[in-house]
Protein backbone atom coordinates (compact mmCIF):
# COMPACT_ATOMS: atom_id res chain seq x y z
CA UNK A 1 0.00 0.00 0.00
CA UNK A 2 1.21 3.49 -0.84
CA UNK A 3 0.12 6.81 0.54
CA UNK A 4 -0.82 9.60 -1.85
CA UNK A 5 -2.22 13.09 -1.25
CA UNK A 6 -4.59 14.54 -3.83
CA UNK A 7 -5.72 18.14 -3.30
CA UNK A 8 -4.79 17.81 0.39
CA UNK A 9 -6.79 14.62 0.90
CA UNK A 10 -4.68 11.63 1.90
CA UNK A 11 -5.59 8.14 0.75
CA UNK A 12 -3.89 4.75 0.86
CA UNK A 13 -4.10 2.77 -2.34
CA UNK A 14 -2.54 -0.37 -3.73
CA UNK A 15 0.73 -0.14 -5.58
CA UNK A 16 0.28 0.27 -9.32
CA UNK A 17 -2.94 2.29 -9.04
CA UNK A 18 -3.08 5.27 -11.36
CA UNK A 19 -3.57 8.77 -9.97
CA UNK A 20 -6.97 9.00 -11.68
CA UNK A 21 -8.22 5.83 -10.03
CA UNK A 22 -6.88 6.97 -6.64
CA UNK A 23 -8.79 10.24 -7.12
CA UNK A 24 -11.93 8.32 -8.05
CA UNK A 25 -11.61 6.39 -4.77
CA UNK A 26 -11.80 9.74 -2.97
CA UNK A 27 -14.58 10.92 -5.29
CA UNK A 28 -16.16 14.36 -5.44
CA UNK A 29 -14.49 17.18 -7.32
CA UNK A 30 -10.89 16.08 -6.88
CA UNK A 31 -11.49 13.65 -9.77
CA UNK A 32 -9.92 14.93 -12.99
CA UNK A 33 -12.14 14.73 -16.07
CA UNK A 34 -11.31 12.00 -18.57
CA UNK A 35 -12.39 11.92 -22.18
CA UNK A 36 -10.47 8.89 -23.42
CA UNK A 37 -9.68 6.75 -20.37
CA UNK A 38 -12.25 4.00 -19.77
CA UNK A 39 -11.50 1.75 -16.83
CA UNK A 40 -12.98 -1.40 -18.34
CA UNK A 41 -11.16 -1.04 -21.66
CA UNK A 42 -7.59 -2.23 -21.53
CA UNK A 43 -5.03 0.16 -22.92
CA UNK A 44 -7.36 3.14 -23.09
CA UNK A 45 -6.22 6.54 -21.94
CA UNK A 46 -3.34 8.88 -22.62
CA UNK A 47 -4.84 10.41 -25.76
CA UNK A 48 -6.99 13.34 -24.78
CA UNK A 49 -4.81 15.07 -22.14
CA UNK A 50 -7.76 16.45 -20.17
CA UNK A 51 -6.79 14.57 -17.02
CA UNK A 52 -3.44 16.35 -16.64
CA UNK A 53 -2.50 16.99 -13.01
CA UNK A 54 0.37 18.73 -11.28
CA UNK A 55 2.66 16.57 -9.18
CA UNK A 56 4.05 18.81 -6.45
CA UNK A 57 6.13 16.06 -4.83
CA UNK A 58 7.19 12.96 -6.70
CA UNK A 59 7.59 10.62 -3.74
CA UNK A 60 9.05 10.44 -0.22
CA UNK A 61 12.38 9.25 -1.58
CA UNK A 62 12.61 11.93 -4.23
CA UNK A 63 10.32 14.82 -3.27
CA UNK A 64 11.23 17.00 -6.26
CA UNK A 65 8.17 18.15 -8.21
CA UNK A 66 7.71 16.75 -11.70
CA UNK A 67 8.51 19.54 -14.18
CA UNK A 68 5.59 18.93 -16.50
CA UNK A 69 1.95 18.13 -15.87
CA UNK A 70 1.31 14.39 -15.92
CA UNK A 71 -1.58 12.41 -17.40
CA UNK A 72 -3.30 11.05 -14.32
CA UNK A 73 -4.94 8.14 -16.15
CA UNK A 74 -1.64 6.49 -16.97
CA UNK A 75 0.71 7.71 -14.23
CA UNK A 76 1.04 5.34 -11.30
CA UNK A 77 1.13 6.64 -7.76
CA UNK A 78 4.25 6.49 -5.65
CA UNK A 79 4.54 6.51 -1.89
CA UNK A 80 4.37 10.06 -0.56
CA UNK A 81 3.25 11.59 -3.85
CA UNK A 82 1.49 14.94 -3.59
CA UNK A 83 -0.90 15.66 -6.46
CA UNK A 84 -2.68 18.90 -7.19
CA UNK A 85 -5.76 18.93 -9.38
CA UNK A 86 -8.43 21.49 -8.46
CA UNK A 87 -5.99 23.45 -6.31
CA UNK A 88 -3.51 24.08 -9.11
CA UNK A 89 -3.79 27.15 -11.30
CA UNK A 90 -1.47 25.55 -13.86
CA UNK A 91 -3.78 22.57 -14.24
CA UNK A 92 -6.76 24.84 -14.68
CA UNK A 93 -5.07 26.88 -17.41
CA UNK A 94 -3.79 23.78 -19.17
CA UNK A 95 -7.15 22.10 -19.13
CA UNK A 96 -8.64 25.21 -20.70
CA UNK A 97 -6.02 25.00 -23.45
CA UNK A 98 -6.66 21.28 -23.98
CA UNK A 99 -10.39 21.99 -24.22
CA UNK A 100 -9.74 24.69 -26.79
CA UNK A 101 -7.71 22.22 -28.86
CA UNK A 102 -10.39 19.54 -28.60
CA UNK A 103 -12.96 22.06 -29.81
CA UNK A 104 -10.89 23.21 -32.79
CA UNK A 105 -12.58 20.85 -35.22
CA UNK A 106 -15.68 20.12 -33.16
CA UNK A 107 -18.79 21.63 -34.73
CA UNK A 108 -21.08 23.76 -32.61
CA UNK A 109 -24.11 21.61 -33.39
CA UNK A 110 -25.29 20.66 -29.90
CA UNK A 111 -28.90 21.65 -30.79
CA UNK A 112 -28.82 18.97 -33.49
CA UNK A 113 -26.65 16.36 -31.77
CA UNK A 114 -28.34 13.46 -29.99
CA UNK A 115 -25.59 13.35 -27.36
CA UNK A 116 -26.38 16.84 -26.03
CA UNK A 117 -27.27 16.69 -22.36
CA UNK A 118 -25.07 13.68 -21.64
CA UNK A 119 -21.98 14.74 -23.56
CA UNK A 120 -18.64 14.79 -21.76
CA UNK A 121 -17.19 17.39 -24.09
CA UNK A 122 -20.16 19.63 -23.34
CA UNK A 123 -19.48 19.27 -19.61
CA UNK A 124 -15.77 19.85 -20.12
CA UNK A 125 -16.25 23.00 -22.15
CA UNK A 126 -18.84 24.21 -19.67
CA UNK A 127 -16.24 23.91 -16.91
CA UNK A 128 -13.07 24.85 -18.76
CA UNK A 129 -13.94 26.23 -22.19
CA UNK A 130 -13.83 29.83 -23.30
CA UNK A 131 -16.81 31.95 -24.23
CA UNK A 132 -15.76 32.20 -27.86
CA UNK A 133 -13.48 30.50 -30.33
CA UNK A 134 -10.13 31.87 -31.52
CA UNK A 135 -9.98 29.40 -34.39
CA UNK A 136 -10.31 31.33 -37.64
CA UNK A 137 -9.43 28.61 -40.13
CA UNK A 138 -12.01 26.36 -41.67
CA UNK A 139 -12.99 23.32 -39.64
CA UNK A 140 -12.48 19.95 -41.27
CA UNK A 141 -15.82 18.48 -42.26
CA UNK A 142 -17.10 15.06 -43.20
CA UNK A 143 -20.46 13.77 -44.29
CA UNK A 144 -22.17 11.63 -41.65
CA UNK A 145 -22.00 7.96 -42.66
CA UNK A 146 -23.76 4.81 -41.54
CA UNK A 147 -21.42 2.21 -40.14
CA UNK A 148 -23.50 -0.89 -39.78
CA UNK A 149 -27.23 -0.46 -40.11
CA UNK A 150 -27.73 0.74 -36.53
CA UNK A 151 -24.85 3.15 -35.93
CA UNK A 152 -24.32 6.61 -37.39
CA UNK A 153 -20.83 8.09 -37.50
CA UNK A 154 -20.45 11.86 -37.42
CA UNK A 155 -16.73 12.22 -37.96
CA UNK A 156 -17.02 16.00 -37.43
CA UNK A 157 -17.69 15.49 -33.76
CA UNK A 158 -15.02 12.87 -33.10
CA UNK A 159 -12.17 13.76 -30.73
CA UNK A 160 -10.15 10.61 -31.56
CA UNK A 161 -10.23 9.09 -28.09
CA UNK A 162 -9.89 5.55 -29.52
CA UNK A 163 -12.45 4.16 -27.07
CA UNK A 164 -14.62 2.69 -29.82
CA UNK A 165 -11.59 1.03 -31.41
CA UNK A 166 -10.80 -0.59 -28.06
CA UNK A 167 -14.39 -1.78 -27.76
CA UNK A 168 -14.19 -3.38 -31.18
CA UNK A 169 -10.88 -4.99 -30.30
CA UNK A 170 -11.82 -6.29 -26.90
CA UNK A 171 -15.54 -7.05 -27.15
CA UNK A 172 -16.05 -8.24 -30.66
CA UNK A 173 -14.34 -11.04 -32.53
CA UNK A 174 -13.32 -9.23 -35.65
CA UNK A 175 -12.49 -5.57 -35.69
CA UNK A 176 -13.57 -3.96 -38.93
CA UNK A 177 -13.11 -0.32 -38.06
CA UNK A 178 -10.23 1.76 -36.85
CA UNK A 179 -8.38 5.02 -37.27
CA UNK A 180 -7.10 5.80 -40.75
CA UNK A 181 -4.42 8.35 -41.65
CA UNK A 182 -2.29 10.29 -39.22
CA UNK A 183 -2.20 13.53 -37.27
CA UNK A 184 -4.58 16.18 -38.48
CA UNK A 185 -6.00 13.85 -41.11
CA UNK A 186 -6.79 10.99 -38.72
CA UNK A 187 -10.34 9.72 -38.90
CA UNK A 188 -12.41 6.81 -37.65
CA UNK A 189 -13.55 4.68 -40.52
CA UNK A 190 -14.45 1.18 -41.54
CA UNK A 191 -12.43 -0.84 -44.00
CA UNK A 192 -13.90 0.06 -47.41
CA UNK A 193 -17.19 1.20 -45.83
CA UNK A 194 -17.65 -2.29 -44.45
CA UNK A 195 -20.54 -2.51 -42.07
CA UNK A 196 -19.93 -3.11 -38.39
CA UNK A 197 -21.88 -6.22 -37.58
CA UNK A 198 -21.25 -7.87 -34.29
CA UNK A 199 -23.34 -8.66 -31.26
CA UNK A 200 -21.60 -6.09 -29.10
CA UNK A 201 -20.81 -3.35 -31.61
CA UNK A 202 -23.50 -1.10 -30.12
CA UNK A 203 -21.35 -0.56 -27.07
CA UNK A 204 -19.19 1.83 -29.04
CA UNK A 205 -22.14 4.23 -28.83
CA UNK A 206 -22.08 4.00 -25.05
CA UNK A 207 -18.33 4.56 -24.75
CA UNK A 208 -18.23 7.49 -27.18
CA UNK A 209 -17.71 10.60 -25.01
CA UNK A 210 -19.14 12.87 -27.71
CA UNK A 211 -21.88 12.46 -30.31
CA UNK A 212 -19.66 10.93 -32.99
CA UNK A 213 -21.26 7.51 -32.72
CA UNK A 214 -24.99 7.60 -32.20
CA UNK A 215 -27.87 5.15 -32.23
CA UNK A 216 -29.68 5.23 -35.58
CA UNK A 217 -32.85 3.80 -34.03
CA UNK A 218 -32.96 6.83 -31.72
CA UNK A 219 -31.75 9.39 -34.25
CA UNK A 220 -33.54 12.72 -33.73
CA UNK A 221 -36.39 10.92 -31.94
CA UNK A 222 -36.28 13.07 -28.84
CA UNK A 223 -33.92 14.91 -26.54
CA UNK A 224 -32.45 13.10 -23.54
CA UNK A 225 -33.97 15.56 -21.08
CA UNK A 226 -37.50 14.77 -22.24
CA UNK A 227 -36.98 11.06 -21.55
CA UNK A 228 -37.12 9.21 -18.28
CA UNK A 229 -34.25 6.82 -17.67
CA UNK A 230 -35.43 3.68 -15.90
CA UNK A 231 -33.40 0.77 -14.61
CA UNK A 232 -34.49 -2.36 -16.36
CA UNK A 233 -33.38 -5.96 -16.70
CA UNK A 234 -34.15 -8.67 -19.16
CA UNK A 235 -33.18 -12.26 -19.61
CA UNK A 236 -30.79 -12.43 -22.50
CA UNK A 237 -28.60 -15.28 -23.69
CA UNK A 238 -25.85 -13.06 -25.02
CA UNK A 239 -25.46 -10.47 -22.26
CA UNK A 240 -26.45 -9.81 -18.63
CA UNK A 241 -29.47 -7.79 -19.85
CA UNK A 242 -28.67 -5.11 -17.30
CA UNK A 243 -29.67 -1.83 -18.92
CA UNK A 244 -31.26 1.59 -18.72
CA UNK A 245 -34.36 2.13 -20.82
CA UNK A 246 -35.19 5.72 -21.75
CA UNK A 247 -38.94 6.08 -21.68
CA UNK A 248 -41.35 8.68 -22.97
CA UNK A 249 -44.75 7.93 -21.50
CA UNK A 250 -45.29 4.22 -21.98
CA UNK A 251 -42.87 3.89 -24.84
CA UNK A 252 -39.20 2.94 -24.82
CA UNK A 253 -37.28 5.31 -27.06
CA UNK A 254 -33.84 3.84 -26.59
CA UNK A 255 -31.83 1.39 -24.53
CA UNK A 256 -28.35 2.02 -23.17
CA UNK A 257 -26.05 0.37 -20.67
CA UNK A 258 -26.16 1.57 -17.08
CA UNK A 259 -23.59 4.31 -16.73
CA UNK A 260 -21.98 5.41 -13.47
CA UNK A 261 -20.94 8.91 -12.40
CA UNK A 262 -17.96 8.82 -14.78
CA UNK A 263 -20.04 7.75 -17.77
CA UNK A 264 -18.70 4.20 -17.66
CA UNK A 265 -20.82 1.06 -17.84
CA UNK A 266 -21.50 -0.28 -14.36
CA UNK A 267 -20.07 -3.56 -13.19
CA UNK A 268 -22.17 -6.58 -12.40
CA UNK A 269 -20.63 -9.53 -10.52
CA UNK A 270 -17.15 -8.19 -11.17
CA UNK A 271 -17.65 -7.93 -14.92
CA UNK A 272 -18.63 -4.92 -16.97
CA UNK A 273 -22.29 -5.25 -17.89
CA UNK A 274 -21.99 -4.54 -21.63
CA UNK A 275 -25.32 -5.07 -23.35
CA UNK A 276 -25.75 -6.83 -26.65
CA UNK A 277 -27.21 -5.33 -29.81
CA UNK A 278 -30.43 -7.34 -29.49
CA UNK A 279 -31.18 -5.65 -26.17
CA UNK A 280 -30.08 -2.27 -27.44
CA UNK A 281 -31.72 -2.06 -30.84
CA UNK A 282 -34.36 -4.74 -31.11
CA UNK A 283 -36.24 -4.82 -27.80
CA UNK A 284 -38.17 -1.60 -27.47
CA UNK A 285 -41.39 -3.04 -26.13
CA UNK A 286 -41.85 -2.30 -22.39
CA UNK A 287 -43.35 -5.79 -21.99
CA UNK A 288 -40.00 -7.33 -22.83
CA UNK A 289 -38.30 -5.53 -19.97
CA UNK A 290 -38.59 -5.87 -16.25
CA UNK A 291 -38.60 -2.24 -15.23
CA UNK A 292 -37.18 -1.77 -11.74
CA UNK A 293 -37.77 1.92 -11.29
CA UNK A 294 -36.38 5.36 -12.03
CA UNK A 295 -32.66 5.78 -12.25
CA UNK A 296 -30.95 8.20 -9.91
CA UNK A 297 -29.94 11.31 -11.84
CA UNK A 298 -27.51 13.93 -10.62
CA UNK A 299 -29.58 17.01 -9.91
CA UNK A 300 -27.11 19.18 -11.81
CA UNK A 301 -27.79 17.21 -14.95
CA UNK A 302 -30.17 18.67 -17.52
CA UNK A 303 -31.94 15.29 -17.53
CA UNK A 304 -33.31 16.06 -14.08
CA UNK A 305 -34.96 19.18 -15.53
CA UNK A 306 -37.76 16.94 -16.62
CA UNK A 307 -40.42 15.95 -14.13
CA UNK A 308 -38.98 12.72 -13.06
CA UNK A 309 -41.30 10.09 -11.64
CA UNK A 310 -42.60 6.61 -12.33
CA UNK A 311 -45.02 6.78 -15.28
CA UNK A 312 -48.07 5.19 -13.71
CA UNK A 313 -46.62 2.25 -11.75
CA UNK A 314 -49.80 0.22 -12.10
CA UNK A 315 -49.49 0.00 -15.86
CA UNK A 316 -45.82 -0.90 -16.11
CA UNK A 317 -44.47 -4.11 -14.68
CA UNK A 318 -42.75 -2.48 -11.75
CA UNK A 319 -44.72 -4.69 -9.42
CA UNK A 320 -43.14 -7.78 -10.87
CA UNK A 321 -39.72 -6.74 -9.72
CA UNK A 322 -40.91 -6.08 -6.20
CA UNK A 323 -42.06 -9.68 -5.75
Amino acid sequence: MVKVTIDGIEIEVEEGTTILNAARMIGGNVVPPAMCYYSSLEGSGGNCRTCLVEIAEGSTRDPRPMPKLMVSCSTQVQDGMVVKNKTSQRVHENRGAVTEFLLINHPLDCPVCDQAGECHLQDLSFDHGGAGSRFEEEKRTFEPIDIGNKIKLHMNRCILCYRCVKVAEQLTEKRVHGVLHRGEHAEISTYIQKAVESDFSGNMIDVCPVGALTDRTFRFKSRVWFLKPMNATRECKKCPGHATVWMFGEEIYRVTGRKDAYGEIERLDGKTAWICDDCRFETKDPKQWNIEGPRKINRHSVISQNHYEIPNPLKTNVKKSLK
Binding site: P111, A116, R223, F226, Q305
Partner: peptide, 9 residues
Amino acid sequence: CTACGLCAV
Protein backbone atom coordinates in the same frame (compact mmCIF):
# COMPACT_ATOMS: atom_id res chain seq x y z
CA CYS B 1 -35.63 25.94 -35.85
CA THR B 2 -33.75 22.65 -35.42
CA ALA B 3 -36.11 21.21 -32.79
CA CYS B 4 -33.43 21.20 -30.09
CA GLY B 5 -36.09 21.30 -27.39
CA LEU B 6 -34.53 24.05 -25.29
CA CYS B 7 -37.62 26.26 -25.54
CA ALA B 8 -39.82 23.39 -24.37
CA VAL B 9 -37.58 22.62 -21.40
